[in-house]
Nucleic acid binder design. Structure first.
Length: 520
RNA sequence: GGUCCCUUCGUCUAAUGGUUAGGACAGGAGAUUCUCAGUCUCUAAAUAGGGGUUCGAUUCCCCUAGGGACUACCA
């Protein structure tokens, strides 16, 4: 297909898309998530995606994914992969966009390359924009001077706003590739409406003067591509982070220059770190990949992230994706920025892990055990059996899936505690500890061999503690340290079941030897 | 510097003119006859400050303070 044909097809498909909207009688909600694939998907972006997605679903509209890959300097394939993977992992499906297509495609801006140029040139023809030949060096110098002089007026000095034909021809002869800049009016003011914030007005003289629409490489800047695509794709509501508020008036100016009706705006409160600054790497993990790798569940991320800057009624905490698809309301979005609380996310994640079906949890936990080298990369049936026993015992102790590794380490890595004092519980002494270990082992091992119920054995151990004149833990602690090599562990009977009787006996005998050597 | 936005417990938030200002996380105390976790109970903790309007302001208006964002051939 030739380039011009392709443009025509884009334009007509956009038209038919719009026609579809109108034909439904009532204006259908169409929102979009339009990330730039220049890095990994992070919490802030995902929250924007979620809000758009839930708003679309709850209002019976369409959720569109658009890839804004106009910055070829920072673009990476990895980022694009990560975008798809992340949305897929979260279970967010887009109605129109890359891969699935749609009536307003293509949905990847680099594939619409020629389109933007055409619109930008039209603006020049209409006298709404102009070619600028200023070098980056000159602009850099200009900026440095403005900063140094603390000038109230900052930005481009409109050096090329009124070039004569001769001047232009001369620049062209020199082979300078121009950019196209929008003529921002110096008089008057521009207002846009935000659902949350109300009307936001800015004097045109305060709008950053004459922003670049088309770069010298022929790619559009964000402002141009964004406005054109939002219009052609029939976007009705723009939900994006509040950091975009300052460019709102500029976008309105662009819509006016084109003679288009601007959509409704809804600027989302930002997600901050503990120090009140925009959330970033130095606050902790921000990329979804990080969270996925550490073992956060998608339902926990969705639940918690949605609750930063949104609430249903102030008391409902747990929301499934499906529930949010029904009850999400744009009016319940907050104005004020919110701090991302890692602890609360942990709490949600622990909750969702506990709510998880054991069979699913077994599968989720497997990669972590494999990565730790605890089980083979293709686990055998005995290994799977072990995991099956491990999961219910470890489940309510996990905040993230990777917690399975420290919780189960005692099974796979045997590093005995050689410090005798560790075996001794508070209120006990070396002699009683050794005695508790010996007698306790006897009760435990023979009881288990005879198939006695755990509760029965536990009773006998408690009786032993009374006999020795120590607290219950005075009996359990030496056994626990002997068996799990730690004062903190899974419950004793679970630990033994995971280890097997032979290994348990071996470890207890060893501990007895350690304590005896010490007591001599 | 300029422009714009924001302001209820430490954190996420509920209450929009009349409540002992509610819930949750985190914190503290206790219970659960094994540690840890979990669960349960209890507890401490807020309307940024100052002016108005009003019989009455968390809620409406103004000012101040604090915080944030933007001010690129990045989005």
């Amino acid at each position: 297909m030739s380039k011009s044909l392709k443009i025509i097809s884009i334009m007509t498909s956009a038209l038919s898309g719009c026609f579809l909207l109108i034909r439904r009688g009532r204006m259908e909600v169409r929102v979009r998530y339009a990330p730039s694939p220049t890095g990994l998907q992070h919490i802030g972006g995902v929250r924007t995606a979620l809000f758009n997605y839930f708003f679309a679903r709850s209002s019976g509209g369409k959720f569109i994914l658009r890839v804004e890959d106009t910055d070829r300097e920072r673009y990476s394939d990895e980022s694009l992969d990560d975008l798809y993977q992340t949305l897929d992992w979260l279970g967010i499906k887009w109605d129109e966009g890359p891969v699935v297509g749609g009536p307003c495609g293509p949905y990847i801006q680099s594939e619409r390359f020629e389109l933007y140029k055409k619109y930008a040139e039209q603006l020049v023809k209409d006298g709404k924009a102009y070619y600028c030949y200023c070098s980056p060096e000159r602009l850099e110098k200009l900026r440095a001077e403005q900063v140094a002089s603390k000038s109230e007026y900052q930005g481009y000095d409109r050096h090329c706003a009124n070039l004569t034909d001769e001047q232009r021809a001369e620049y062209e002869r020199q082979g300078i590739k121009p950019v196209i800049r929008l003529k921002v009016p110096t008089e008057g003011k521009t207002t846009f409406h935000d659902i949350l914030m109300g009307d936001i007005t800015r004097r045109n003289r305060d709008v950053s003067p004459d922003p670049i629409l088309l770069k010298s490489d022929g790619f559009p800047t964000y402002h141009l591509a964004n406005v054109i695509d939002d219009h052609l794709m029939g976007i009705t509501h723009i939900m994006r982070a509040q950091e975009w508020i300052p460019s709102g008036p500029l976008h309105i100016l662009l819509y006016e220059a084109f003679g288009w009706e601007p959509p409704v705006y809804c600027h989302l409160p930002m997600v901050m770190g503990k120090d009140g600054q925009k959330l970033s790497k130095r606050h902790g993990s921000t990329s979804l990949r990080d969270f996925r790798e550490k073992g956060y569940l998608p339902e926990a991320i969705i639940n918690y992230v949605t609750l930063v800057g949104w609430s249903l009624d102030g008391s409902t905490e747990f929301f499934s994706k499906e529930e949010l698809e029904k009850c999400f309301k744009i009016e319940n979005i907050h104005k004020a920025p919110g701090v991302f609380d890692y602890k609360k996310l942990d709490w949600f994640n622990g909750y969702y892990i506990r709510a998880c079906e054991n069979s699913r949890l077994e599968e989720l936990v497997l990669p972590y055990l494999i990565k730790a080298g605890y089980i083979g990369s293709e686990p055998g049936s005995d290994e799977l059996e072990l995991v099956k026993k491990l999961v219910p015992a470890a489940k309510e102790r996990m905040k993230v899936l990777s917690d399975i590794v420290p919780l189960s380490a005692f099974i796979f890595v045997d590093e005995p505690v050689v410090d005798a004092s560790v075996y001794c519980a508070k209120g006990s002494d070396a002699e009683k500890t050794l005695s508790a270990l010996k007698n306790g082992a006897e009760i435990l091992l023979s009881g288990l061999k005879d198939g006695k119920a755990n509760e029965k054995i536990e009773e006998e151990l408690v009786a032993l503690s009374t006999e020795l004149g120590v607290k219950v833990n005075g009996v359990f602690q030496p056994l626990r340290v002997a068996i799990t090599n730690s004062t903190v562990s899974l419950p004793l009977f679970d630990s033994i079941a995971l280890l097997g009787l032979d290994e348990t006996k071996k470890r207890i005998d060893r501990a007895i030897r350690i304590l005896e050597a010490k007591n001599e």
